[in-house]
């Protein structure tokens, strides 16, 4: 028996039929073809599937698709405004804060959540907030520099 899910993703109303055991991650990737959200572990340890659900940063692999009913979901696909990259995305590119890029969508979504909650983080606060997002390529150095730079640009703009 499939379940009908109505939800809002990146401001658009969407609906789909899923098996009740389907995770939000698999619903996004396999049913809605939003493959920007990545799977690294399936157990909430790596943060590659970070999305924002009703304002809260979650691992989509730990949420059931049916739980998204009536919720507002923000994914990596909604971060840029058409061709206009978000400052965080620009700073990740400027600082070469990605190598393979598989963790990047999750890190950008998490960074956006961090700066929404704490627009003026210290480096240590940024490192602890992002501790749930694993990156194996960069050693995090350039990621943290990009995050701090994005924070200062956003602060000036506000």
């Amino acid at each position: 028996m499939k379940t009908h899910v109505q939800t809002e993703i990146n401001g658009e109303a969407v609906e789909c039929l899923i098996d009740p055991s389907t995770t939000l991650l698999n619903m996004l990737r396999n049913d809605l073809l939003l493959t920007g959200t990545k799977e690294g572990c399936g157990s909430g340890d790596c943060g590659a599937c970070s999305v924002v659900m009703d304002g809260e940063l979650v691992c989509a692999c730990l949420v059931l698709g049916v739980e998204a009913s009536g919720a507002k979901i923000e994914t990596i696909e909604g971060v840029a405004d058409k061709d206009q990259l978000h400052v965080i995305q620009e700073k990740f590119l400027e600082h070469a804060a990605l190598q393979c890029g598989i963790c990047t969508p999750g890190l950008i979504v998490s960074t956006k959540a961090l700066l929404a909650q704490n627009p003026n983080p210290t480096e240590e606060e940024a490192r602890y907030f992002l501790a749930g997002n694993l990156c194996r390529c960069t050693g995090y150095d350039k990621i943290i520099k990009a995050v701090m730079d994005a924070a200062s640009v956003l602060k000036e703009a506000s």
Binding site: R29, T35, E39, L85, G101
Partner: peptide, 21 residues
């Protein structure tokens, strides 16, 4: 120089297609 990587846009927007995509 420190140019912007040509595959960068796809990778920060989630458009890049990896093995499972």
């Amino acid at each position: 120089q420190r140019t912007i990587r040509p595959d960068g846009f796809d990778k920060v927007t989630g458009r890049a297609n990896y093995g499972a995509d």
